[in-house]
Amino acid sequence: MSYTRVPYLQVHTKILKITLLLALLGGAFLVLFLFNPSQHSFFLPCPFKFVTGYNCPGCGSQRALHQLAHGNIQTAFFLNPLLILSLPLLIYSLGLKLWNYLFETVHRVRLFYSNLFIFSYFGIAIAYWIFRNLPIYPFVK
């Protein structure tokens, strides 16, 4: 990548963007902490669930994040295990992206460069999509 460097402006935009990001994340956390999505209707439900009545692999994420914000890891896990299990990986890779942006490094998450990982992760997501809608014990709707 080639670009002309304007150090002051660059640092300035970086600070601005980080502040915006923190404000957005903080706001989202506050809303999810204060209001339980299963009791308040102003949260946007999943369009797939709204139309078909079935759960998608992402359904329950908002409720799970609300429980997680209150420290109820087990409740959160039962609401959406896929999200809870992906969360460490998501935080790590997004953190690494932020680090790369701030310090102009090119660190990569090794796992993401394995096509075996990609296929297994999305295979699990699709399998979870199907199984969570079946009326079998751990996957009650």
Partner: peptide
């Protein structure tokens, strides 16, 4: 950067 993070985020946030 292959941007797989966004694919995972899309999956858990219902933008399949």
């Amino acid at each position: 950067d292959n941007n797989l993070v966004w694919a995972i985020l899309c999956t858990v946030l219902c933008c399949i």
